[in-house]
Amino acid sequence: MQKIISEINDIVQDEALGKGSIIPYFEEIQGRFRYLPPEALILVCEHLNIPLSQAYAVATFYHAFSLRPKGKHCMNICMGTACHVRGSPQLLDRLETKLGVKAGSTTRDKLFTLETVNCLGACALGPIVVIDGEYSGQMTPQKSDALLRRIMRSEEKEQRG
């Protein structure tokens, strides 16, 4: 915890982020921790001298920010129109069933966070899934099974050491 606070403090003191808006701070913090710890909201508000209620409104309004820690692996399914007509709903169905969570939540073992995004702009390759920043195009439910299996195998290997 102490370490988190000191890291947040480093970000808060970063002058390049300016004094105008909380959003660049949130972006930095979200980038570093993949969520906004409550301490971050409080420290940024103190630094910028704005009410905490405003920061909380911003943190809950924008989809890029999350107030809960994310799983080890983030799966993002593109729900853009082009992906939709090429079958992204079936893909999402499949991943929700396989992972046992609904879009927007994290598995109980904290291994996966399943999310949707409204168009990544790679429409020619739909449906698209992004796992930990890596794009996979022309996905099918079968291919998504294979992707999951691959991650699970590497996780098992890691656990065995």
């Binding site: 105008g20 808006s21 909380i22 959003i23 949130f26 972006e27 704005i50 405003q54 409104a57 911003v58 309004f61 924008y62 989809h63 890029a64 920010f65 995004v117 409204n118």
Partner: peptide, 21 residues
């Protein structure tokens, strides 16, 4: 930061100013 409504001019401005879009 992931809000379609920010394509609207006044929401975009609110967002740059650090507020809810």
């Amino acid at each position: 930061s992931g809000a379609f409504v920010c394509g609207e001019e006044t929401a975009l401005i609110a967002s740059i100013e650090g507020r809810v879009g």
